[in-house]
Design a protein around this nucleic acid. Structure first.
Lengths: 347, 347
DNA sequence: CTGAAAGCGCTTACAG
DNA sequence: CTGAAAGCGCTTACAG
């Protein structure tokens, strides 16, 4: 038989070799290493020393086969459009996704699980592939084919952001979109805004709905008209310019714009400036989702940091809880307002 | 023993059950399914039907244990700075990385491998984790600790972009940085530029070095002065503004700026405009690395599309070649120039 | 506290 | 062309 191929320089050392060196049985080695069963402390010390000396590392395939688990979690990021197709580009927040991916990997590893990246297209293929115990799906859309495929395969999932077509599913982690909207609106009002407009997006996602609802509620609570304009993903810059012009040309011009989606904040800022308005002088602006582009805008855009690291950690923790049979739970994670020049009229 | 845990709804069907249903031995099932060994065509048909009827899916752990491979490739993306630390943010091109990740996952799967995401921090931890046959490391820096850890673990690697501290390593995939620079410079010259400046970055990466060298060579070939300014990652906006001002205030002002790094193009554009210059009227501009931000700038920024999908596919293919014992190889992948308004004076 | 043995699901010499 | 058997490395009843 070929030796284990995943370490190319040295044949893997097995539990049997450790047992031989420590002068005990493989059972005792297994017990000493896993902490299960009773082992004499001296014996245990000897085993540990032997394992270390030999550089023993357990064979995951053997463990997984024996235990009937994969100890692997899957991550499904949103798909960018395939080159050349007319598909809408769902890659709304690349900075966010990269951090989610890296932090989720770390969180999974620290819990002794591997994080497998599944391609977001071809969900059937993905599911036919190596087994996973559970999956994290980022930014589900309505009737998301990835979620359907995972369901059909019987793989438990947790979503980051909620699936708008199954709001009854309790297994989700998301920014506290409603709370974040309130934080941003209160900040703009504190900064002097009296008529705040919402720049929304024509995307069928939970966060968009929640942001709009929270905006409407805030407006009625504060006895303000709920001014909403909407831009579109397919036609991002032009539709943002149109929406901004519509807001600016309205009989009662707003004095602040809250753009909920990460990608739309900087273009909205540019559009306002192109009309000849000063930000923050003539118009306060804030974005619902922070990004490098928001930080790099002139002026820098005030934005809600959705804390991708916290989202990823919570998602992995929740998925492991689900796999452990714990009762349903969800986590709305409060964002952190990053105040920058676009919303500071007097500074 | 617990049943295989990665399919929660139905106990996994094993090769033994397929054998029973087809009325043959497990050996024959294995042969029929794998295509190895000789099997009577009729028998094979029967086995395949039985496997399909039962929904048989091979247990990867068992296969891997038996074959001594992991059939798993690792992907290491660059790290964003940990929150609160002063580390330089190496997340230079999030759009690029997300596409690389998704496409690499698809490429690995189509070759019957899983793609495992390793956390870019704590390389020891990463390597102690589940076994992988090989790894793709994106954007290595000089003396990259991730590469060292992988080397020490004996895991073969392929890099996307070259490690500047081991240019003798043949196992890399990268944009054709030199060729791309020439394409961009020729385009700017064709568009009317007579004095082109390079906006570079103070990062110790292979691509930066290659872009600068290609620029210098192009300039001497065309009998032009090699005007170079440099911005810095830590101080992105301010240093970009400074670099731009330095270029604009020079006795012989350039009429075009080529910003090599993805993140610096849009801020450079904004800085030029803030000085009161029109783009493309007074200054042509192009970026060495395309991004959503470049597309969304006003005017949109001409940029080189580094084709992240091609990079990812080539990297996975090259890594599998390396694992298969094929001779060393590398791939410089030509980029595609995306001409936009920032470099079209007459349109 | 310790160990011999069974068995997870698979692949592959080997014998027929 | 087909099948019985060994064995990959591990964990865990079970017996001592």
């Amino acid at each position: 038989l070929p030796r284990q191929g995943h370490r190319s320089d040295a044949a893997s050392v097995t539990i049997r070799q450790v047992a031989a060196r420590a002068g005990v049985s493989v059972t005792t080695v297994s017990h000493a290493l896993s902490g299960r069963g009773r082992v004499d402390p001296n014996t245990k010390t000897r085993v540990l020393a032997a394992a270390k000396a030999l550089g023993y590392r357990p064979n995951r395939s053997a463990q997984n086969l024996r235990l009937g688990r994969a100890r692997t979690l899957a991550l499904l990021l949103p798909a960018a459009a395939d080159r050349g197709t007319g598909d809408t580009n769902l890659l709304l927040a690349a900075d966010f996704y990269v951090t989610v991916a890296n932090v989720a990997a770390r969180a999974a590893f620290s819990q002794d699980h591997a994080l497998m990246l599944l391609p977001p297209w071809e969900p059937r293929l993905s599911v036919d592939a190596p087994p996973v115990d559970g999956a994290v799906v980022v930014d589900p859309v309505r009737a998301d084919p990835r979620l359907r495929a995972l369901d059909e395969a019987g793989i438990p999932t947790v979503t980051i952001e909620r699936d708008p077509s199954r709001l009854d599913d309790p297994w989700w982690v998301a920014p506290d979109n409603r709370g974040n909207t309130v934080i941003a609106l209160n900040h703009l009002a504190d900064a002097g805004a009296t008529r705040i407009a919402l720049l929304s997006v024509d995307v069928d996602a939970g966060w968009a709905i929640e942001n709009e609802e929270a905006f409407t509620a805030w407006c009625s609570e504060h006895d303000k008209p709920p001014i909403v304009a909407r831009a579109s993903l397919e036609n991002l810059v032009e539709s943002t310019e149109q929406a901004v012009r519509q807001l600016v040309d309205a009989p009662a011009r707003p004095d602040a714009i809250f753009a909920i989606a990460e990608l739309f904040g900087p273009p909205a800022l540019t559009a306002v400036q192109a009309i000849g308005l000063d930000v923050p002088g003539d118009m306060l602006m804030a974005s619902g989702h922070d990004s490098r582009a928001a930080q790099l805008s002139r002026p820098p855009l005030t934005a809600i940091d959705a804390r991708p690291d916290a989202q990823a950690n919570a998602a992995i923790e929740l998925l492991l809880a689900r796999l452990a049979g714990e009762p349903p739970a969800h986590h709305a994670i409060p964002g952190q307002l990053r105040v920058r020049r676009s919303s500071q009229r007097f500074s």
